[in-house]
Structure formats: structure tokens, C-alpha cells
């Protein structure tokens, strides 16, 4: 899925506080199937940009096109449906549902997307847990898993619906190098296989070598970086 941003501005305003514009992107584009590393220091606006791309946060002004469709021209219900079917999002804090098992967490977008029947959903969820090495932990609740295991469940959940756009916010922040590589391998391989566009926000310098396109977010604007 190709992504286009035009004249995007996002400003945080709160009573008693000075308004702060965190995103000022005139024109930016990601072609379908691209794998992009989005870098930037903490507070630079990486998560805000991912939230906007996920359809969770309407920008103050500007246009966001995903797959040729203006994302925020769609009704909210439709954007919700897109998150369940077309856009996979790996949150920085994983945000797994604590009352559900690992398997049920992975199943969640499939339920909300209503693409598969119960049996097919379950089979797909098992397959994904298997691919992240957590099949034996399918009954575990998030609190019974380690940070790395939780991240892997979150990755499996984001890939469950075979989305056309995968967004990952600091996916390797809490992982050691080996686990970090394993997770990134899984993400990138899966996206390559399905042709999905992958945008990973991270300030981990080690990741830069894995991407053919790296973008720096500085002072609210996106700058193409040299890749190795």
C-alpha cells in the first residue's frame, strides 16, 4: 500500500500550555512494499506520525492518503475496520489486552475485521504464534510473558490480518541484540512475502543497515537519509 502525505501539520494544544506543532510535512511518499526506517530523537513526533498513519489521530491539517484513499475522509468506523484488516500496528508498549491469552490477542484483529470464521481465525493465530516461537505459550496472559515475548505476540497480532501497511513503534527498544534481529527478521520477511509496506520508527542505529530507505524526522519535517 502506498502512503502519501501532503501539507501535513499537527499541533498539540492544551489549556494553559503553549501550542506546539510537532509535524510540518509538505510532501512525503512511500511506495507500496517499501520498508522504511523512521528515525528521530525522543519527542520528535515519530509516534504522532505513526498514529496519524494508523488512522488513530486526525492531523490538524493536511492530507493522508493510504492506497489512494484519503484516510481521514473515511468515517471513523471505516478507519477502525482498516486497522483490523489493512493496517497492522505494533505499539511501543505492546498494548496487549491483559484479560486475554496470547492466542486471543493475536486473534483480535481477525475478529474485528470479520474476514475469517472462528476455526480459520484460530488456525491463523496458532500459525502466527508458531512463527514467533510462542505456540507453547498460547494460553499465557500478557502478564505471564516476558517483555520480549509480549513484543513477539504484538508482532504476531499486527501481522494477523496480513495487512498492506505495517507500522512498528520502537519494536526493538526493550530487546537484546539477538532478539532484536529475530524480530526484525520476522517483520521484514513477512512484509516482503505479502508485499506490505513497512514503516518502523526507531532510534536504534543498528537498524539502519536493514532498510533500503531511512527517513529522519527533525523539527517536524521528514528528511531522507543516506543509506549504507
Amino acid at each position: 500500500m502506498d502512503v502519501v502525505l501532503q501539507q501535513l501539520r499537527h499541533t498539540y494544544a492544551a489549556p494553559g500550555l503553549e501550542a506546539r506543532t510537532v509535524l510540518m510535512i509538505d510532501e512525503w511518499q512511500a511506495t507500496s512494499g517499501a520498508q522504511i526506517l523512521l528515525r528521530g530523537i525522543s519527542g520528535s513526533g515519530k509516534t504522532t506520525l505513526l498514529n496519524i498513519l494508523a488512522g488513530l489521530l486526525p492531523p490538524t491539517t493536511g492530507l493522508v492518503r493510504c492506497g489512494g484513499q484519503s484516510l481521514y475522509a473515511l468515517p471513523e468506523d471505516e478507519r477502525d475496520r482498516l486497522r483490523a484488516t489493512t493496517i497492522g500496528y505494533i505499539f511501543q508498549m505492546h498494548h496487549l489486552a491483559p484479560t486475554l491469552s496470547a492466542l486471543e490477542n493475536v486473534e483480535m484483529p481477525l475478529v474485528f475485521g470479520r474476514k475469517l470464521n472462528a476455526g480459520a481465525r484460530r488456525a491463523r493465530a496458532y500459525e502466527l504464534l508458531d512463527s514467533v516461537g510462542l505456540r507453547d505459550f498460547h494460553r499465557h496472559r500478557p502478564l505471564q510473558l516476558s517483555t520480549g515475548q509480549r513484543l513477539r505476540v504484538a508482532v504476531a497480532r499486527a501481522l494477523a490480518a496480513q495487512p498492506a501497511l505495517v507500522l512498528a513503534d520502537e519494536p526493538t527498544a526493550a530487546l537484546d541484540a539477538e532478539s532484536s534481529h529475530a524480530v526484525m527478521d520476522l517483520l521484514q520477511e513477512s512484509c516482503r512475502r505479502t508485499g506490505a509496506t513497512l514503516i518502523v520508527a526507531s532510534h536504534d542505529p543498528a537498524l539502519a543497515t536493514r532498510f533500503d530507505r531511512v527517513v529522519d524526522l527533525r523539527n517536524g519535517a521528514l528528511h531522507e537519509a543516506e543509506t549504507l
Binding site: H95, M108, F112
Partner: peptide
């Protein structure tokens, strides 16, 4: 927080 997670992975408001 849990409700927000559900929304975050595609649950609609009415869900």
C-alpha cells in the same frame, strides 16, 4: 486502557 487497546486494533466504538 483496555478499551483503547481494543479500539487500537480495530474495534469500533459500538463494539
Amino acid at each position: 486502557h483496555l478499551l483503547a487497546i481494543l479500539r487500537g486494533v480495530g474495534a469500533r466504538r459500538r463494539t
